[in-house]
Amino acid sequence: MQEIFNIFIKSIFIDNMVFAYFLGMCSYIAVSKTVNTSVGLGAAVIFVLGITVPVDYLMNEYLLKPGALVWLDEDFAEVDLSFLSFIMFIAVIASMVQLVEMVVEKFSPALYSSLGIFLPLIAVNCAILGGSLFMQEREYQSLGEATAFALGSGIGWFLAIVGIAAIREKIHYSNVPGPLKGIGITFIITGLMGIAFMSFLGIKL
């Protein structure tokens, strides 16, 4: 239990998706103009990560890993399908996003109208695929750990995009040098936020 909690906290603050690995930067820069839309996108990322990473974990565990097919037949102990993981993960993500979009549209029109427009965008967000690939690389031991990692990363991403959106709303009124306006200053502020987040590095979990 403690291990799961540690992974959760670690993936929010120390291994933050944006500040430590630059994942999902494209939408992070493009959709962070106002706080409202960035809250919507952030929530959608938490949601989709929380679904796709556990599914990809099961996929990896029972299909792709070397020797994962043993549950089918003892003869498959030698089979290693891990070279297929990219294509499997992206297929799971694309179909999951489609599925989630349809379910949300059917059962919660209110949620759909606030999240809906972001869902197709998320299929090609590097943070989602990155989540699955990190899950595979770090070899989490149980479904619980993988889920904790997914939710933690999502929340970390949410914090980052809401933070930068709030700063960008304010910086609109500042006297930034012309050539640095827009994305230039956004990069530099993100760098500074990253340095601030590095203060969590000292925490031993």
């Binding site: 500040f19 430590a20 690995y21 630059f22 040098p177 012309g178 050539p179 640095l180 306006k181 827009g182 994305i183 230039g184 200053i185 956004t186 990069f187 530099i188 993100t190 760098g191 500074l192 936020m193 990253g194 340095i195 590095m198």
Partner: peptide, 27 residues
Amino acid sequence: ILPPMALIVVGVIIWVQRSKNPDLIKD
């Protein structure tokens, strides 16, 4: 070597490029 500096270096590159091509400046 730490991650945040990559962002700042790219920010500076954008700054230099846009000062040289003022027509890229928007917003």
